[in-house]
Design a protein around this nucleic acid. Sequence first.
RNA 1: CGGGCUGUAGCGCAGUUUGGCAGCGCGCAUCGUUCGGGACGAUGAGGCCGUGGGUUCAAAUCCCACCAGCCCGACCA
Length: 408
Amino acid sequence: MRLSTYNFKTRRETPQDADSANAALLSRGRFIERGMTGVYNFLPMGWVVMENIMSIIRKHMNSTGAYEGRFTTLQDKQLWDRAGRWESGKDIMYQFKDHGEREVGLGFTHEEVFVDLLSRQPLSYADFPYKVYQFQTKFRFEARPKSGLLRGREFLMKDLYSAHATDEELKTYYDQVKEAYHTIFTELGIPVIETLASGGVFTDNFSHEFQTISPIGEDEVYICDQCKMGINKEVIEKVGHKCPNCGGTQFSIEKTIEVGNTFDLGTYYSEKMAVTYADSEDVQKPFWLASYGIGISRAMGTIVELHHDDKGIIWPESVAPASVHLVGLTERAEAVYQQLIEAGILVIYDDRALSAGEKFADADLLGMPVRITVGAKTPEGQVEWKNRDGERSDNMTLETAINKLKED
RNA sequence: CGGGCUGUAGCGCAGUUUGGCAGCGCGCAUCGUUCGGGACGAUGAGGCCGUGGGUUCAAAUCCCACCAGCCCGACCA
């Protein structure tokens, strides 16, 4: 991609409404642009990051045997009444009347939709489990949106739902998804602590949260000194200040961002909504349900909170919009650009007629993992390689550089 | 939803106390000189001073209401 044709120009100054590192840097780099409070547009380069995050998640969701689908956003009140959540969800759900007198709402989670979907066919024990996930824009009325992409009223989320004939089957899959979550967050560059938490509006059981330590986080987690398991402050009384995993009583307390969660919902929704399956004796029984979420836009904001310096973003290779930021200071860069493309490397090429200083500053702000410079000071037949998170710049042949890029 | 602060050009801000021509920096346009860490000069374009009402000869400035943004609470993926 040539910056000369990508004309969303970076900002030198931080917009006054940017209240966090992720809001400031993503906005200065023109990855996102605020629409209204808690609501963001994604510009093309920002959307590439979102797509990259989604592909990583998609890969690992598929490997658990789940299938990707897409549920409705606009939903009838009657559906929500079936489990009694039209009333209990009033504070966070956008609810309104359409052009007639029909009461509708924007789904902020999809347990009801998934259970209703299952009820559209006769259910047999032999057909379980069902595992469907989606990427969808969620709407939740947050009293006070804050911290850029970390808490918004409209945000992109991956939600997975699984239905099981038995509790044992659910627990096996539940653990499998938690494993997948650990892998996903590692790949995203977000170190997580698996944390015991309350079920919120979803369930009275414990839920599991995937928390990452950050001073901007809104949660407080007690981390067990022995086994490193987390216990959300909201349930520390409930567990008697004792680690349920190893019995440890020494904790360190950290501010954290919740980047993922899993809920074991039991047979609650199946029973409430009166959707059951026939077991091997042809007895109708309630099935077991679990749901699992990861906020995509929140993950993007979190990555920036975790990976930046005073000059800009430092994208992990796995989600970066491109592998290389090519700073072209002389004509020779054009040929280098072509060869990088031919080698199959994703590259952002700064071919604009700007001063070197501006180009370097933008390269730092935009945060591709590797910067390659070609200028008058570059020895003939070589390029200058600099890692975004390093200080040194090294001269090497383009061939060497390409090989290095392909190793990663 | 309570308390506080703030809304002036695309962005960052001064001007409001004490009413009197709409300002600065960045960015943008044209020309020239520059050219390895956000270069320099010249010229120029760009404004519903958040919105509505009021006071006044005169309002960005004073008064009232509303809207929006940020912060602290309450709430929350």
